[in-house]
Design a protein around this nucleic acid. Sequence first.
DNA 1: ATACCAACTGCCAAAATATGTCAGTTGAGA
DNA 2: TCTCAACTGACATATTTTGGCAGTTGGTAT
Lengths: 233, 233
Amino acid sequence: MQRSARLAEIVEIVRDGRLHLARDIADALEVSIRTIYRDIDTLVASGVPIEGERGVGYLLREAVFLPPMALSLTELEALTLGMAIVQEAADEDLQAAARAVMRKVGEHASNRRQAPKSWGFGVYAFERARDGFRHMPLIRRAIREGLKLRIAYRSLDDRNSTRVIRPLQTEYWGRVWTCSAWCELRQDFRAFRIDRMQSCEPTGARFQPEAGKTIEDYLKHVADQMDPDRDGA
Amino acid sequence: MQRSARLAEIVEIVRDGRLHLARDIADALEVSIRTIYRDIDTLVASGVPIEGERGVGYLLREAVFLPPMALSLTELEALTLGMAIVQEAADEDLQAAARAVMRKVGEHASNRRQAPKSWGFGVYAFERARDGFRHMPLIRRAIREGLKLRIAYRSLDDRNSTRVIRPLQTEYWGRVWTCSAWCELRQDFRAFRIDRMQSCEPTGARFQPEAGKTIEDYLKHVADQMDPDRDGA
DNA sequence: ATACCAACTGCCAAAATATGTCAGTTGAGA
DNA sequence: TCTCAACTGACATATTTTGGCAGTTGGTAT
């Protein structure tokens, strides 16, 4: 196995977020433990955020490793446009992430001989309801980790309710964000406008994918009933 | 110099879109020409679209090479969301490019141990005016290459005009795309809704950045006058 | 047709790099 | 104090990379 391929393989092994011992990695890749120590040095030196702790093991958290890629100019434009839109239309966490992506990509992509100053895109939102993004970072985390949320919701015709939901996905409607979820009050799927959530907090409970209540079930469900604002109770 | 660093360096040299001889690259990197031939083999094998022609030289067109990168989960979400929006809100060229980006990124990013089936995003556009994207690929090319365009425009109050413009940038307003340009008819900056362009074709002429008519001048200009739909003539 | 160009290929010895082994040290926790 | 596993340095060995050489190939200019 080539050295470069082995480096990539180490990242693959380590990025599941669990602890790994140099000994085990060495066995899996059929090289000596010394080589693994040297390889991890190389990876850290080239920016892969692997954390090693004496007596514990190696850990790579919250990171995904992209291999070298060749993008066409049009693909780079799509990427730039997408990141520009996210920087306008999403919450601060995602805005910062989009900026970071552009910094990482741009750093290497823009030092071409005649670098275009502008990429030819501008993105503007007519109604910037920054306040409507307030709960999004929490909701995204809840979707990732399977956390139940308790929300206070004010419907479009100003009726209030409090309910526990299992958030499944967020949707962007051009101006408004919604969160689709399994609603434990209604025992059914519901979509909530995020800017109409008066409050939003984890209940502390978690949920597992459950037959009939998963994102796949929801997507089948909406194929039939097409009216996200139907729920006003 | 390390082999891997040299491979990256070759891409840097070659991606200016001009012809390069293996001899010159070898001299620049202080290795033998034989090594360059082997390196280019390696690069092509790993997907870099370098074209070599006997008796001519090497060429890499329309491509940008991204080095290995580590993205945080949030950054990957921003990337995924941006590409999802572009796939909804842009013309077919950009849609295809966004799909390609996700294929390239996802290929490597999604084979984690517990791969999330969905990234927790859905993107929907209320008004899909696909027809309004018709001229966008041409306009983007014109911006890149500095081509003058002749457009037939129908204003919001239904007055028609034909003019030659120097396109500078496109803007996305959540639902509608516009193109800002130097208008040779009005001798001033104008913003045109792309879905109101009845026709759009290159005049054959090119333009160079000219003091007072560049994208930078335009951005200064809009800072003062803030009404993109003002021009109805 | 001929000459020329520069990409490409196969081969081999020399140079550079990566690897395994071994004998340590370090920091944290039990 | 002991254990664990990350880490480090040194050195002989194995592997990979490199340069040089002698070709071939496809295309263009003469």
